[in-house]
Nucleic acid binder design. Structure first.
Lengths: 215, 215
DNA sequence: AGTTGTTCTAAACAGACGTTCAAAACAACT
DNA sequence: AGTTGTTTTGAACGTCTGTTTAGAACAACT
């Protein structure tokens, strides 16, 4: 690769993101990472203490960078409706997932199958995002519906996005082409419409049950 | 464990399902598996050729057993409506995922992150299920809607089920209790209602766009 | 009891793994 | 040129990996 210009530490981080993404934490070897980075194997100890320290640094780096590039309110005008905010949230999540897939499948893999030592960090980073989503949903779901049901809606929405990610089974098996931006936007609109309909149905069902209980 | 009664081969399969589920393919070691099964390490070679052969056998076993116990038309009366068939499909999928989580998280892990050597087998086993789902959806989605959009709906539904599975991030982080049957049924009803609403919204949007194009 | 085939084990093999250490290369400042 | 501190390396360490081998235990049948 480009062994020049950037310093060894950065090249190490870059290669580590690739290899961890391709092979997972256990599957990746520090030898492979260092070979791709063009550095000696002792560097991972010097810069990051050990393999786990390198993994943690890569993870935090990618997460914050993706969030900076595609924030949850991405592409919104100044006074957006709640529906528009939900669409922006879904679209930005899909973009982040796709971006990570490019060279950074590590994030996706971590999301699906978190490493034990990183669960705390993971919660720290993702919980604010869940807060954003549930705040958006509070403007869409009937306020009388129990919070548990709202959480179900949030899970349904995130689940759809996660499963659309290129790493998911369907796209692996059927060899779908890599997503282009337009395709992501199409999928984002589809998931948004589907989810708004789902929320509406949940609201209607709740109201119908409420009336039948009263009557 | 129960080193008696069952033969060594079965104990090996049982332990392998546990360990593969907990640690993944790379993370699991044949030594650990054989220790839990209470057999010598050479048995994996004798019965299954190598580690991969054992993994493949475990996978096929669990998949077919789960499908036999919770078929996609589970608990349907004799002349079900399309909505009821969708509900049965979702409910059976959730039950299978939960059953596998008990001792058989291997299936779930494979679904999220398939091992390279098993992609063909995986497609072979899951494609019939996708066929069932899309057949159900053909009775719900407007027949004029392009097939691609219908596939989006299928993905949305499966994605919701997958993400509700105990292995998913949310439940790991927030330490939800293990699902009981009633909870699964509740979630199945929620996902079904959500999805039916989603499909209806997709239909309405399509018709609205069609009218605006014509008018 | 003897033979045959299957099932299982303990011990050893070769290789890959993460990690460490002494020393080399380098930069910066005196 | 000499000193100091940082960065990087090659080689080695001990451990753990999947796999194999030679043989023990066992069952079934003669």
């Amino acid at each position: 690769m480009n062994s020049d210009e950037t310093c060894a530490r950065d090249r190490l981080l870059h290669a580590a993101a690739e290899v961890f993404g391709e092979c997972g934490y256990k599957g990746a070897t520090v030898r492979d990472i260092c070979r791709r980075a063009g550095v000696g194997i002792a560097l991972v100890n010097y810069h990051f203490r050990d393999k786990e320290g390198l993994y943690l640094e890569v993870f935090r780096n990618l997460f914050t960078r993706a969030l900076r590039e595609y924030p949850p309110d991405m592409g919104l005008n100044e006074s957006p409706s709640t529906e528009e905010r939900l669409h922006a949230f879904i679209r930005s999540l899909l973009y982040r997932l796709t971006m990570m897939e490019g060279r950074h499948a590590i994030m996706l893999r971590e999301w699906l199958d978190p490493s034990p030592s990183l669960v705390k960090l993971h919660a720290e980073l993702t919980n604010p995002l869940l807060k954003v989503l549930s705040e958006i949903l509070s403007g869409l779901v009937d306020p009388h519906i129990p919070q548990e049901q709202t959480a179900h809606c949030a899970t349904s929405i995130i689940g759809q996005c996660m499963f659309y990610s290129p790493h998911s089974m369907r796209f692996r098996l059927q060899a779908f082409p890599m997503y282009q931006e337009r395709q992501i936007d199409t999928i984002a609109r589809s998931i948004t419409a589907f989810s708004l309909g789902g929320i509406r149905a949940i609201n209607e069902e709740f109201r119908a049950r409420g009336e039948s209980h009263e009557g």
